[in-house]
């Protein structure tokens, strides 16, 4: 039941229909960060469709996606895997106490050249 709820949420907030996927794997062929991920873009699509959301939610892969949209741009069937990955990550960080990045971690990460943009973006991606 829980699982179905997550699947529903992921589908709703991503606006993606994983059934459109024809399993060509072009997303994973395009992904620049493929080697850093446990689950790869094409797996996100099929695992969301199979309702295996929790497996994805506990994987560090959700924080490795660069949201560079290469998979979205090149998908021949307009499935938009990056939107699914984002939605799975949101399912995690929207839960109480699940922020991936905490403000008190920031100071040690800073260096003097680091642009604000990086901190702002990371906050938007990793916290709620």
């Amino acid at each position: 039941m829980e699982q179905n709820n997550f699947k529903e949420t992921v589908l709703r907030i991503s606006g993606v229909n994983p059934k459109k996927c024809m399993r060509c794997g072009k997303c994973s062929g395009a992904c620049p960060n493929y080697d850093e991920m446990e689950f790869h873009p094409h797996q996100f699509v099929s695992m969301v469709e199979n309702g295996e959301i929790e497996k994805l939610m506990t994987s560090p892969s959700v924080y490795k996606c660069l949201t560079c949209f290469a998979c979205v741009e090149r998908c021949p069937r307009q499935v938009e895997p990056a939107k699914l990955i984002e939605a799975v990550r949101l399912c995690v960080i929207r839960q109480a106490g699940q922020n991936h990045l905490k403000p008190d971690q920031i100071p040690e990460m800073l260096d003097e050249d680091l642009p604000q943009q990086a901190i702002v973006s990371a906050f938007r991606k990793f916290t709620k």
Binding site: G25, S28, G29, A30, Y34, H40
Partner: peptide, 11 residues
Amino acid sequence: VQASDLLDNKQ
């Protein structure tokens, strides 16, 4: 050529 190998789950 950067490509996916779906059966081996490799890039």
